[in-house]
């Protein structure tokens, strides 16, 4: 187990290194210059600016400087936003993103598990149909459509929530709901399939034969065993959340990293884009690693050996 984790962490570092290298050279290939009004600047000014940002050095040297900086947690300096260090931009904006992300994943998975479980227990009843219908809606309708609809009805028409403002818990409710739709749908769907499987198994039959009520059987035996595979979809859900956070934060004007990413793209702020790319990749890789390890701990049938993890 320890050896496996070490190996996975090794791969993780290798992957991050490759991503850092790839993004660095991609950014060097990008057309255009980092200075917005280059036409107005004299050659002398450009030279000074280049020196200031270290852009006068050979590309390979810049690359080494960048890598060494990364090891110290230095992501470079933003071209926009008053020359703030990228690491400062990220750390000051990660709070709201994390809050909404965590709230959405809790809301989505808890409701999803409930909905999926009820659908499985009442299989082929109207409850099941309704649950399946909602799961399909949640999976199909893009979250920015949800976000705009929520904003329109609950914030603009009914004025229950603030339209676009970051001020306390009440302003995080709408973005959380918009973001939670996708995880909710995925979990509900997955949970239903797993639960139906588990409910057909022998040990559930035994639990029923012992004289447990249906709800006891579900709570004590079925729920736990159907929850195990649900852990595997946390990885893909994390990706959905990251993608979703970009537009949802943008729509609700939340000062988070998703919003920052979109802004940086439109302003060609390469150091910030690079820093955020690395951050997103890092978070994703860590989530996948943690899920894999958790899975091995929880389900003893899964043996973590060196040559798997590819499926």
């Amino acid at each position: 187990m320890g050896k496996y984790i070490l190996k996975r962490i090794g791969y993780m570092i290798l992957t991050l290194f490759i991503i850092a290298t790839a993004t660095f050279f991609l950014m060097k290939l990008m057309p255009g210059s980092p200075y917005a009004n280059q036409a107005k600047m004299s050659a002398e000014q450009i030279k000074i600016m280049n020196q200031q940002y270290g852009l006068d050095k050979p590309v390979f040297q810049q690359y080494l400087i960048y890598l060494v900086g990364l090891l110290h947690g230095d992501f470079g300096t933003s071209f926009q936003f008053n020359n703030q260090p990228v690491s400062y931009l990220i750390s000051s904006r990660i709070g709201p993103s994390m809050q909404i992300g965590v709230q959405a994943i809790i809301l989505g998975t808890v409701l999803g598990i409930l909905l999926g479980a009820i659908a499985a227990i009442r299989k082929n009843s109207w409850v099941d149909t309704v649950a399946t219908f909602f799961a399909i809606l949640g999976r199909s309708i893009p979250n920015f459509v949800f976000a705009v609809l929520l904003q329109f009805f609950l914030a603009f028409k009914l004025k229950i929530f603030p339209i676009a403002l970051w001020d306390g818990f009440s302003s995080s409710i709408l973005p959380t709901i918009a973001l939670a739709m996708a995880p909710l749908a995925t979990t509900a769907r997955f949970m239903r399939t797993e639960m139906v499987d588990v409910l057909n198994s022998d040990y559930i039959e035994l639990a029923r034969a012992k004289g447990n009520t249906p709800w006891q059987t579900v709570a004590k035996h079925a729920l736990r065993n159907s929850l195990i595979p649900v852990i595997t979809i946390i990885g893909p859900m994390a990706v959905d959340l990251m993608v979703g956070s970009m537009v949802v934060e943008n729509i609700f004007s939340i000062p988070g990293i998703g919003d920052q990413f979109v802004k940086s793209i439109t302003t060609n702020d390469y150091p910030t884009i690079m820093g955020l790319t690395l951050l997103y990749s890092f978070m994703l890789i860590v989530v996948i690693l943690v899920v894999d390890i958790l899975y091995g701990f929880i389900d003893p049938r899964i043996r973590l050996s060196g040559n798997e993890g590819s499926n």
Partner: peptide, 23 residues
Amino acid sequence: MQRFIEIISSIPNLVIVILMLLL
């Protein structure tokens, strides 16, 4: 081949798409 896939898939594909579109 699977290692290669693992590396590509550990980058959020949105990030790859965005980087490509910038290029």
